[in-house]
Computed example of a mutant assay.
Amino acid sequence: MPYATTSDGVQLYFEETGSGRPLILVHEFAGDMRSFEQQMRHFGKRYRTVVYNARGFPPSDVPTDVSSYSQARAADDILAVLDHIGEKQAHVVGLSMGGFATLHFGLRHQARALSLCIGGCGYGAELEKRDSFRTEADMIAKKLLKGDMPAFAEQYSLGPTRVQFQRKDPRGFAEFRRILAEHSPLGSANTQSGVQKERPSLYDLVDEMKRITVPTLIITGDEDWPCLLPGLLMKQTISSAALCVMPNSGHAINIEEPDEYNRIVGDFLSQVESGRWPNRDPRALRNSITGIDN
């Protein structure tokens, strides 16, 4: 089985398909590498497409200590995979927890990114909701440590940004729930405590995000409520960013609307590859609403 070794000795299981420019897929908390199967098949026709399981998600290692999990480690784990496959740069595409990791990869290792696709990024970012988000993360970790993953999956999968998927695609939703139920309770609990709960708010990262110049796509569903305002923040802050909002969609957009998601991300990658991805015209940020000054 192929594994990449991180700087702190954690083994990350990965798979790859295709050839060409490298593209790394980074999964969400409630998913794993299997959640990107439709993207592996689609993008593997054009790119060297790599997907891996985050630390805490078997068959990757499950460190027992919460201190082995953090937002910085999640970003550096992408780098470990990139180094292991022997590539200098890659397109990085992430969703939710993976979207945060993709953003932080851009903050920490921008020179190694060909582009960033940041999906479903924003949970717990709004400052007035930080305390409630952190409280929920503690509650989730305690539930997980009880070890009943099927019961947890039954409840977690029916959150307010997941029911859209259930309504549209009951069969796909059942597969999503089954995958979540197979996760490691300890790894999931430690991920909640070390990564989700402790990651910094996007609103505290404005100055850092302003330094991102690599082509960036921010993509979210229009019913992914916690990600809408943070998506606007990233769009306004990152001069090389575009914002795409998918209609009538919740959180897991890559499996909820795979054809549309693949089209949007594919168009983005094509523009980057052709050198046609723009930086924002500074005139777009003038204080005047109409452009007519006194």
Score class of each variant (00 low, 15 high):
Y3C: 01
L12M: 05
L12Q: 06
S19W: 09
L25P: 00
V26T: 07
Q39T: 05
M40L: 15
M40Y: 10
H42Q: 12
V50Y: 05
G56L: 06
D61W: 01
T64W: 01
Q71S: 12
I78C: 08
A80Q: 10
K88T: 10
A90F: 12
G99Q: 09
H109I: 04
R112V: 06
G119M: 07
C121R: 00
C121M: 02
G124K: 07
F152A: 03
A153G: 02
Q155V: 12
Y156Q: 14
G159W: 10
Q166W: 07
E175Q: 12
F176R: 03
S184N: 12
P185W: 12
Q192Y: 15
P200S: 10
L202D: 03
L202H: 04
L205S: 09
V206P: 02
M209Q: 09
R211I: 00
T213V: 10
I219E: 11
P226S: 13
P226F: 11
G231S: 10
L232G: 12
L232V: 10
L232A: 11
S239Y: 04
A242R: 15
L243H: 15
V245R: 11
H251M: 03
H251P: 00
I255N: 05
D259W: 07
E260T: 13
I264K: 08
V272G: 09
W277D: 07
L285S: 14
S288M: 06
I289W: 15
